[in-house]
């Protein structure tokens, strides 16, 4: 039971990797740039989390869904996976949206001619 949240996050992250690979969205568009963006994003949000925890704004819930492993007081290991998912999903969606938008004028041109 303690692995449930971590497992859910891992499955979702796997989905992000599959989509990235299939459509060449993020790491498969530019692996080096993607690595920098992902690591910087996770680090940025971890600092945000740590300050929020330090200020007593939010804290780890008492639940049986998490492993109980923490990387800092009140900061569960699951949060790193959650932030990775947030960042990966954002960049996959951004690349997909950009491609969709880029295709629209081309379609219109095709229809017009």
């Amino acid at each position: 039971m303690g692995l449930l949240y971590l497992a859910a996050l891992t499955i979702a992250l796997t989905g992000m990797v599959v989509l990235d690979r299939r459509f060449g969205l993020f790491f498969w568009a530019d692996a080096r740039r993607a690595a920098v963006v992902l690591v910087a994003g996770i680090a940025f949000f971890l600092v945000w989390d740590l300050l929020g925890i330090g200020l007593g704004i939010f804290f780890r819930g008492e639940t049986s869904f998490m492993t109980g492993l923490v990387i800092a007081p009140e900061l569960p290991i699951e949060e790193v996976f959650f932030l990775a998912l947030l960042c990966y999903l954002t960049m996959n969606a951004y690349a997909a949206a950009g491609r969709m938008l880029a295709r629209m004028p081309a379609d219109r041109r095709g229809a017009a001619s």
């Binding site: 060449g24 530019d30 080096r32 963006v37 960049m91």
Partner: peptide, 24 residues
């Protein structure tokens, strides 16, 4: 957090140099 992610990450992506040889 969501607002920050959707603005910060694409901005970083655009600021970083494109790797030569990448699909980008």
């Amino acid at each position: 957090y969501t607002v920050a992610a959707v603005v910060l990450l694409p901005s970083l992506w655009a600021l970083l140099p494109v790797s030569s040889g990448s699909a980008s």
